[in-house]
């Protein structure tokens, strides 16, 4: 009997796979040794690879973050100096502020728009299927390509958007979409949402479609309006997926690099320099690999903290779909 077969044998109707069933233990114990060994053998290569890559890369990053590591400077141990320099540096503070504002702007926007789009796509109308297929395209585009495409739209003097607004008589002079701070920040938010909205919407659509239609029929019979049905049925039904999407997009936003690189290169000034872009620039443009490693570690810790805080802030059982 193979490892997978045992899992099937032990399942009973109603078993959610998380609790051992009465009697299963004795069956399993009888064959525990060979099954356990098979399992270990099958999992070991992957576990080993993960351990090696995670442990070694983490060790290497921590080690490197305590050193001056640069092709043109003499390598040497500097302790926590790289961390101190970063925390004292004006660019790091600016990048951190930018990242916080960016993350806590795009994630709520994506959730709200994602739900709206999911609800729209859940309605039957002509062209629904084509729209579902078409809207996934922005997500399929690499962020760097999306950045370049939008750059040509946002360019100051002869970008498409300024051209259209000018022809419509809305503006007299080109708007500095990429050369003025507040516009450039908005441009990065718009393009990021544009690239991420399809995936968020598809995930949320799947969640919406998993809600039993009978619940809506019952609510309608009870006199619930559209808003009431959304509040009492839809929202609780998609809550686990909303949290998953929120976490995913939070991480995507926090580590967003290629879009900024292609669209603004962190400018104007440092208006759109996010921490991930800053870490890249520190490592690969200033060739300061020690500081870049320190930065990467701080990003990882910050992301971990944010995720843990969010997980703790969630209501108990929030990730369990209890709508049905």
């Amino acid at each position: 009997m193979g490892f997978g077969e045992r899992t099937v044998v032990n399942r009973t109707p109603g078993d959610n796979g998380t609790q051992p069933q009465a009697g299963a233990g004795s069956v399993g114990r009888a064959r525990r040794s060979p099954d356990w060994l098979t399992g270990v053998i099958m999992v070991a290569p992957v576990a080993l690879l993960i351990a090696v890559f995670f442990v070694y890369s983490t060790y290497r990053a921590v080690y490197q973050s305590t050193r001056i590591e640069s092709p043109i400077f003499k390598p040497r141990f500097v302790g926590l100096q790289n961390y101190r320099d970063l925390l004292d540096g004006r660019f790091f503070r600016q990048a951190s502020e930018n990242s916080l504002v960016f993350v806590f702007t795009v994630v709520p926007v994506l959730l709200v728009l994602g739900v709206l789009v999911a609800l729209l796509l859940n309605e039957p109308f002509r062209g629904n299927t084509a729209l579902r297929i078409g809207m996934i395209l922005p997500w399929a585009l690499p962020a760097a390509v999306a950045g370049l495409v939008w750059k040509w739209i946002f360019l100051d003097s002869w970008g498409a958007l300024n051209g259209i607004l000018g022809r419509l008589g809305v503006i007299d002079a080109p708007i500095g979409f990429l050369s003025q701070s507040r516009w450039a920040k908005l441009a990065v938010v718009v393009v990021f949402v544009w690239t991420q909205l399809p995936l968020a919407s598809i995930f949320l659509l799947a969640a919406v479609q998993s809600i039993s239609p009978e619940l809506y029929e019952a609510a309608e019979l009870d006199g619930a309006g559209a808003l009431g049905r959304f509040r009492t049925i839809t929202l609780p039904g998609i809550r686990p997926m909303l949290l998953i999407v929120a976490l995913f997009e939070l991480l995507m936003a926090f580590t967003n690099f290629d879009l900024v690189y292609a669209l603004t290169q962190g400018g104007p000034g440092t208006a759109t320099t996010l921490v991930s872009y800053f870490a890249w620039a520190e490592s690969f443009r200033k060739l300061n690999f020690g500081a870049g490693a320190a930065m990467a570690i701080m990003i990882a810790i910050a992301a971990l903290v944010v995720i843990l805080v969010l997980m703790r802030a969630m209501p108990k059982g929030a990730l369990v779909d209890d709508s049905q």
């Binding site: 701070s181 104007p268 000034g269």
Partner: peptide, 23 residues
């Protein structure tokens, strides 16, 4: 100077910040 190439990576953002009115 040997460090000109690397210095330019700091000079540009500083000039950019000043052009942008940040400093």
């Amino acid at each position: 100077a040997i460090w000109y190439g690397i210095f330019a990576e700091s000079f540009n953002p500083l000039l950019g910040q000043a052009l942008n009115g940040e400093i």
